[in-house]
Design a protein around this nucleic acid. Structure first.
Length: 505
RNA sequence: GCGAGUGUAGCUCAGGGGUAGAGCAUCACCUUGCCAAGGUGAGGGUCGAGGGUUCAAAUCCCUUCACUCGCUCCA
């Protein structure tokens, strides 16, 4: 096992030990790729959401929020392209262990036959010179006719089987035409299985009258179908954005790497509607805005990078990812996509309802173009954990610290009596009650003071307030910094102001 | 789905036919005057599940389940 995955392993077990993340359904042996957020995980997650919502919605005049439902009309997923585009027949080669899409295997086979025909044509052209008639050749050449017939027949059968979802026959077809695996060169294929990205379920209490529907695979569509509702009621003018935080569900073929790729996950999305033709300007604008956001909470230059897409999705005309350097490499954390007017237009087509905006400045109506920023909340959570987890040597002992940015930390301040006697606990609890109105606090009196500091370090608490005998004399406490372990003595009255300075957005 | 690996205490793991173990963690009491691991005691396990071999199985055999890693996909 590589050193990198050892790091991830440490983070996973630390997350569990300190109440951040538990494996789902653990006492039933777990459920693959599902995780639960524990008492401190849920706080960190909430703080990340707040940080995003504040900067994307609260601090801007041109973006408003939305919380659309997870269940939506099944027609939406037809319009968005999810029903057709993510419904693949998959087949494995048992020798090379490679997985392919069955239809793509057959298509590349047809491609090969086509190039063989081309070769024949070229050869014949050489032979006959200028008098060469391509159509005539194709009709008379036995070999070319053979290829053409096979292509026609194979294409027809493939399409028929795909539509009927007759995967048994589709496999037979692959075997009959003798397709081999490009890697192993063998015909040792598994059966074809259908893979569907979306989870389906039923709504309605009577089974046979129930309507099939899907759990949403992205939050974006809830925004698109509410475009006019939001624009009109919040009286927004293009350019403007709609933001949403919510769960999404994808039946990933393989879900791995802890909370990086889960089947149930949470997205923080914003769709920004702009005038047609101005999309690249806004695409660049949001690229800059979003990278600024990441840097503001302390992600450094060398753990972030843009990754521009070469192959664009069916709806996009430009796309980039912000990648974060996880222990398993640079991976997508956030996507910024120029989605054109694909979604709005597609919903118009499917509903026969106008989804246009009248631009009073231009004096015309149009379907806005859309720039999407979409960040995985769980991926952000993991990025924060990976960035924060540190082990350092202090007097030949390992100190494990979660250097979580203070504004994101689940617990902001721990209040600790130096000793569990002499009225120190009582005094500490007074301070706890006072501070807890402003920050999330933690009170602890067990074990030696050093041990308690280390425990708070491991939990990621940025500040410890220690109450000692001097506190009883002059109302002063020590304030300890998690990252430097430095302590300053300050008056209790100054605590709230000082902490506020360090903990505000 | 295929391949490999792993399942023993809350965590990290040892033990490989003969009474279930260690360190850390937890709880109680004592100790403790600022950076983890001081003392005494206690709780906690049908050794992933089912079956087989055996006088005897955590240990050997078979089956099964779950997780982890790799491969294909990722709006």
């Amino acid at each position: 096992m590589s050193k990198l995955s050892v790091d991830l392993k440490k983070i996973i077990s630390h997350s569990k030990e300190y109440g951040y993340i538990f494996p789902s359904s653990e006492i039933y042996d777990g459920l693959s790729a599902c995780y639960d957020y524990g008492p401190f995980g849920v706080e960190l997650k909430r703080n990340i959401k707040d940080y995003w919502w504040r900067s994307m919605v609260k601090s801007r005049l041109d973006v408003v929020g939305l919380d659309s439902s997870i269940f939506m009309h099944p027609g939406i997923w037809k319009a968005s392209g999810h029903v057709d585009a993510f419904n693949d027949p998959l087949i494995d080669n048992k020798d090379s262990k490679k997985r392919y899409r069955a239809d793509q295997l057959i298509e590349s086979y047809i491609e090969k036959l086509n190039s063989k025909i081309e070769k024949e044509v070229k050869k014949a052209h050489k032979r006959f010179g200028d008098k060469f008639d391509k159509d005539q050749f194709l009709q008379t050449s036995v070999r070319a006719q053979d290829y053409l017939n096979t292509i026609t027949k194979t294409t027809k059968l493939m399409n028929q089987y795909l539509i009927e979802e007759d995967y048994g026959s589709l496999k037979k077809l692959i075997e009959e035409i003798g397709i081999v695996c490009p890697v192993s060169g063998t015909k040792n294929w598994t059966d074809i299985r259908k893979f569907n990205l979306m989870f389906s379920t039923k709504i309605g209490s009577v089974a046979d009258q129930a309507t099939d529907l899907y759990l949403r695979p992205e939050t974006a569509q809830g925004i698109f179908v509410n475009f006019l509702n939001v624009q009109k009621t919040a009286r927004m003018k293009v350019p403007f954005g709609i933001a949403q935080i919510g769960k999404a569900f994808r039946n990933e073929i393989i879900a791995r790497q802890f909370i990086f790729r889960m089947r149930e996950f949470e997205q923080m999305e914003m769709q920004f509607f702009v005038r047609p033709g101005e999309e690249m300007k806004w695409f660049d604008y949001w690229k800059k805005e979003r990278i600024k956001w990441h840097k503001k909470i302390g992600f450094s230059e060398n753990v972030l990078k843009f990754h521009d897409h070469e192959n664009l999705a069916h709806y996009a005309n430009a796309a980039t990812d912000i990648e974060f350097k996880y222990p398993f490499g640079f991976k997508e954390l956030e996507g910024i996509h120029s989605r054109t007017d694909f979604d709005l237009r597609s919903h118009e087509k499917h509903t026969n309802k106008k989804l246009q905006y009248f631009d009073s400045e231009l004096g015309e109506s149009y379907t806005p173009y859309v720039i999407e920023t979409s960040i995985g909340l769980d991926r952000m959570f993991l990025a924060v954990l990976c960035q924060s987890y540190t082990e350092e040597l202090v007097k030949e002992n390992t100190r494990i610290v979660l250097k979580i940015p203070p504004i994101l930390a689940p617990i902001k301040v721990a209040i600790l009596p130096l000793l569990k006697k002499d009225n120190l606990p009582e005094k500490s609890k007074d301070i706890y009650n006072k501070l807890n109105n402003f920050f999330s606090c933690y009170y602890e009196e067990k074990d030696s003071i050093g041990k308690r500091y280390r425990r708070q370090d491991a939990l990621g608490t940025p500040f410890c307030v220690t109450v000692d005998h001097e506190t009883l004399d002059n109302n002063s406490v020590t304030l300890r910094n998690r990252d430097t372990m430095d302590q300053v003595r300050i008056s209790i009255d100054d605590l709230i102001i000082q902490l506020n300075n360090k903990l505000s957005f």
